[in-house]
Design a protein around this nucleic acid. Structure first.
Ligand SMILES: [Mn+2]
Ligand SMILES: [Mn+2]
Ligand SMILES: [Mn+2]
Ligand SMILES: [Mn+2]
Lengths: 221, 221
DNA sequence: AAAAAAATTTAGACAAACCTAAAAATATAT
DNA sequence: ATATATTTTTAGGTTTGTCTAAATTTTTTT
């Protein structure tokens, strides 16, 4: 098996993220934006990845992952999320502190390591942010969560994940006492600013701004 | 704090290893040999490391680590050995399987990560090969072990570590049933080939070749 | 359908870490 | 003390992943 570089893996992961589940074409500029590089650099890399058979690329047409590229991307994502579980569950990091470290750990190349880590963690299905962890074969769950903004007054939902992974957002949730698994009941929605009054675990009530609601993934129970 | 590259860290670690505890000058060729590069490449890197104040370098005179360089090297060694403990103790790897993976993990840059890992492992003082783990301040124990070749007939010693870290050697020890902590009693030494008859934990006796004796670190009890 | 704007690619460079071949310095042998 | 051998450095290139500026293609507007 040929080794992909750190950088190549990051491009594949980014293409996967921007491509969405429908596998839509990703533009050069979108990739430049996401990878904090210039469009010209992206073009260079796309040529190389196409050469290696990891992406489908036709000049000016955007890119999608090939089957092989998808496999590689999902394996990197698997490692990222497993390491995040390790950092939170075993080392006691906060969910707001683990992304950057996992960003490095995800490139450690050893299949045995990943499988042993997975077993050590008890084969977790979700990472600390509620994102599903692909299995060793590259199967990725697609839990159909909805946003808190889509929930009607009176409904009770489970907090299942976040759209925004920024540590500032996660820390805000910590201060609000909203964690994965919290039961949220929408008691009222303000007409003017769409902020919601939400009861948490049948206890405290809390005002949740639209900005926050838009980034909370929840599930009906 | 300025970041050193993966490669720079490996050079510093190698200089530390070749420099020994006396901090003797390391030659360009020795570094080329150890890093599997050419002397010309080593010279390039030495210039850069000297520029950064990590080594003392005068053309043609060999190199030593500066205080700062030593700190960096010891921190990399600390991370390497802690990760090896993790891989063996927590993930169930054999001591013959962990070196290459730790070689990658040792470059993950996060002081908090190292300290949390250290705590999670219970502040181990030695790695799976018996090598002492530097503390957070860069203090490194210097246990004065001796080689099994220096032990007289009739003496009982504790197996404390290995000089050779090659997996082939470690696997040979596994097959012989010699592990860290084994009590070894030298019962006889063959005049001709210096092979030893050794009793392990007061049980089985075993023939140990000179090649093996030369690589076993032991301690009088 | 042409013009203007936006997106993308090409051309030409650069830094990091490596290489080979040649030159220079140091060490060893006569 | 010279000659020879060894070690180390310099000179000039290569590859990877990046950059800016210019050229080209595609998209949008008029
Ligand atoms: Mn993450
Ligand atoms: Mn995550
Ligand atoms: Mn090791
Ligand atoms: Mn070790």
């Amino acid at each position: 098996m040929i080794q992909n570089s750190f950088t190549e893996e990051n491009y594949l992961k980014t293409i996967h993220a921007l491509s969405g589940r429908e596998g839509v074409e990703v533009s050069t500029n979108a990739l430049a934006e996401s990878t904090s590089t210039r469009a010209a650099s992206v073009t260079d890399m796309l040529k190389k990845l196409a050469e290696k058979g990891l992406i489908n690329y036709k000049k000016y047409q955007g890119v999608t992952l090939t089957e092989v590229g998808e496999k590689v991307a999902l394996n990197v994502i698997r490692k990222h999320r497993l390491w995040e579980v390790f950092l939170v569950e075993k080392l006691g990091f906060g969910w707001d502190e683990v992304h950057d470290i996992a960003e490095e750990l995800e490139h450690i190349p050893s299949d045995v390591l990943v499988e042993k880590l997975d077993a050590f963690l008890g084969h977790p299905r979700f990472d600390p942010h509620g994102d599903p962890i692909p299995d060793a074969k590259g199967n990725l769950l697609d839990p159909d969560y909805r946003l808190l903004t889509d929930i009607q007054i009176g409904e009770k939902v489970l907090m299942m994940g976040v759209l925004d992974h920024a540590s500032s957002f996660l820390q805000h949730l910590d201060r609000s006492g909203i964690t994965l698994g919290s039961v949220l009941e929408v008691q009222d929605i303000n007409e003017y600013d769409k902020s919601a009054t939400v009861q948490i675990n049948g206890e405290r009530t809390l005002f949740v701004s639209l900005e926050v609601s838009k980034n909370l993934l929840v599930q009906r129970r």
